[in-house]
């Protein structure tokens, strides 16, 4: 019984760790898509931010400077997406894919040229990483059975970015539903002509949404390279940007269901890592590739099963052209 509790707790703990980049990226996607700009480029922005954060942290030996660099690069890519989609009325999906391909080439090229380690950045020291924080009272509470374990493994012992990421959905929900900017952002995604008639610049709102999206993707990338691991490696995002996008669609572009979808994907991922190499009674060892495919398979099943009547922002993907 206690063994099962331990197992569950460790799966939940790794669920939280794996959910962080998904939550940040999905919320980034929400900022962009609720303003009417499709964002397939989350993957590339995260990857580039991961590289920038790891490279900067390796040189400066400061995790926070790394985070700032990650955010800056990701915001720049977001603005590039903005220029293509908002200023030049370009195809938004194509622009997003362009950013993904660009990042997949640029990050390893620069990593090779600057660090000469086969497309990786140097391993970060403790100062260059976001390390675990122990919340107060861990010594006294930590020894209590059950509650102590939960406090020690699930609530305490994460790095700062984890706590920031957990707060993000609430901040994004507050921005979207409780501020004037959020109202305008949603209007830009639902009915940009109404917004325009009200005398608000649709472009300016959408650009600001892109910047918000860039900031969150930047944190997500920095988390991958300087908190979860201690260096940048090629393709380290491994499709998380696309999974986040799927979570956003599955969550019907709303913060709470999207957050739950992120946890669902992360849980599947945590289970698949736990399943690798274990013998399942009656079946034996499931091939590792089949288990690794679980999150992707789940994505397809979820999108196929529940998205029949999804309510995407009405003006999503459409360039805004003023009526004359």
């Amino acid at each position: 019984m206690y063994e099962f509790f331990d197992l569950t707790l460790s799966v939940f703990a790794s669920t939280i760790r794996l959910a962080i980049p998904l939550i940040l990226a999905a919320m980034a996607g929400m900022m962009s898509e609720r303003s009417g700009i499709v964002n397939v480029g989350l993957e590339g922005k995260m990857l580039m931010a991961a590289f920038a954060a790891a490279a900067t942290a390796a040189v400066t030996n400061d995790a926070w400077v790394g985070l700032a660099a990650g955010i800056m690069v990701s915001v720049l890519l977001s603005l590039l997406h903005g220029v293509a989609c908002i200023t030049y009325n370009g195809n938004q999906v194509v622009s997003g894919m362009a950013i993904n391909i660009l990042a997949a080439g640029l990050a390893p090229t620069l990593a090779n040229a600057w660090f000469n380690r086969g497309g990786q950045t140097p391993m970060l020291s403790a100062d260059g990483r976001h390390t675990a924080i122990h919340l107060p009272g861990i010594e006294t509470v930590g020894d209590i059975p059950v509650i102590g374990d939960v406090y020690r493994l699930l609530i305490s012992g994460h790095n700062m970015l984890v706590y920031i990421a957990i707060l993000t959905p609430f901040i994004v929900a507050w921005i979207l539903y409780a501020t004037r900017f959020g109202l305008r952002l949603r209007a830009a995604g639902e009915n940009p002509h109404a917004l325009d008639t009200a005398g608000v610049s649709v472009s300016s709102i959408r650009y600001r949404a892109q910047i918000g999206c860039g900031i969150l993707c930047g944190i997500a990338g920095a988390y991958l390279a300087t908190a979860q691991s201690a260096a940048f490696s090629q393709n380290m995002t491994a499709g998380r940007g696309y999974l986040a996008l799927a979570a956003l669609i599955f969550g019907r572009w709303r913060p709470k269901p999207t957050l739950l979808a992120c946890f669902l994907f992360a849980f599947t991922d945590a289970v698949q890592i736990r399943l690798q190499g274990t013998v399942i009674p009656g079946i034996g060892i499931i091939p590792v590739q089949m288990i690794q495919a679980l999150p992707y398979l789940l994505t397809i099943l979820l999108l196929a099963g529940f998205i029949g009547k999804s309510e995407a922002p009405k003006a999503i993907g459409l360039p805004f052209v003023k009526d004359r």
Binding site: L80, V83, A84, C85, Y88, G90, N91, Q92, V94, S95, M97, A98, I99, N100, I101, L102, A103, A104, G105, L106, P108, T109, N112, A113, G119
Partner: peptide
């Protein structure tokens, strides 16, 4: 330099010929 540099050109071509 590595072959990844070609992927950079590829991404930029998609960007300029497709989105921009």
């Amino acid at each position: 330099l590595s072959r990844d540099m070609i992927v950079v050109i590829q991404g930029l071509v998609v960007l300029f010929c497709g989105a921009m």
